[in-house]
């Protein structure tokens, strides 16, 4: 998987400017790269996370992390236009496969790639992984509440 350098980002963007989710459900804490075409986000996994269950981050935690990463990518467009972040809703999750679950102390990297857009719906391919292993992959449809 390609790793993006932080220098390639056009400017520093605050996550709060890209997604409307706040604590305790904000599921990305670092934005390494965000353009209208792709994004690379990070999350330090902790047992204090609301979606941590038993000894691991749950499926719901991984999906929310991927969803917010996709919504952040969709939010970049608004940010570049200088308007507040729109509420990006997930319309559909497809072909979502869970490979492994990250645990306390691990860092999750999530990669979003723009695929297509039609009728106000944007399609993204997403993969989430730790340094150790791939965690999950899926295809998500995001629609923006203008």
């Amino acid at each position: 998987m390609t790793s993006f350098s932080e220098k390639s980002m056009p400017e520093r963007i605050d996550i709060n400017d890209l997604i409307p989710q706040r604590e305790p459900v904000q599921m990305i804490d670092t934005l390494y790269e965000a353009t209208t075409e792709e994004a690379h986000t990070g999350l330090s996994v902790s047992r204090d996370n609301i979606f941590y269950e038993g000894d691991r981050l749950s499926e719901m935690g991984l999906i929310e992390n991927m969803a917010q990463s996709a919504a952040a990518t969709a939010g970049v467009k608004n940010h570049l236009l200088g308007i507040p972040p729109s509420l990006g809703y997930i319309g559909e999750i497809k072909k979502c496969i869970f490979h492994s679950f990250p645990t306390d102390g691990e860092h999750l990297h999530t990669y979003v790639r723009y695929v297509s857009e039609a009728a106000g719906v944007i399609l993204y391919d997403i993969e989430s992984r730790t340094d150790r292993a791939s965690c999950a992959e899926c295809r998500m449809k995001v629609f923006i509440d203008e």
Partner: peptide, 10 residues
């Protein structure tokens, strides 16, 4: 429907 049109495009 409006959600699946993008699947056709992709």
């Amino acid at each position: 429907d409006s959600l699946s049109l993008v699947d056709l495009v992709a």
